[in-house]
């Protein structure tokens, strides 16, 4: 019984540690759970681009505010016809998608990118 109690206590401690780390770690990055349901649109100029796995991130300046815009993994961008050379510093683009639920953060996930009037649809099955 003593062994079992110690075992359960240790497992509990591990779960607590994991939970505490998770709870203090802030915004979830992957998937959609961190974003709100309403559609959101942002137009601005790309300042920096970090493209590639596990997902691409752009810094976009819109009305003198820097936003972080999550775009697709390489294959998703490629499928939409979006080349890395189009997502470079100085390019003006409109991003449609969903903003982070936490309004204190200027973060959005893009479903569609519009550059010079041309639409690149990263998620053709989402609206």
């Amino acid at each position: 019984m003593v062994i079992r109690r110690r075992f359960i206590a240790l497992c509990g401690a591990a779960a607590l540690l994991g939970g505490a780390v998770f709870a203090t770690s802030g915004l979830a990055h992957h998937g959609w759970t961190w974003a709100e349901g309403e559609n959101f649109e942002l137009t601005g100029v790309i300042r920096t681009a970090r493209l590639g796995n596990p997902h691409g991130l752009l810094t976009v300046n819109a009305k003198n505010e820097d936003w972080t815009v999550e775009v697709g993994q390489p294959w998703r961008n490629a499928r939409a016809g979006l080349k890395d050379s189009m997502l470079v510093k100085g390019v003006e683009a409109t991003f449609q998608g969903h903003r982070a639920t936490d309004k204190s953060k200027r973060v959005m996930k893009a479903e569609r990118v519009i550059i010079k009037g041309k639409l690149f649809n990263l998620y053709p099955d989402r609206d």
Partner: peptide, 20 residues
């Protein structure tokens, strides 16, 4: 018991890296 707790914690941390 420590081994189970530690490796389990490693897995939790590793998985959560994708969500922070």
């Amino acid at each position: 018991a420590l081994s189970i707790a530690l490796w389990l914690s490693v897995i939790v941390c590793g998985r959560m890296l994708a969500f922070v």
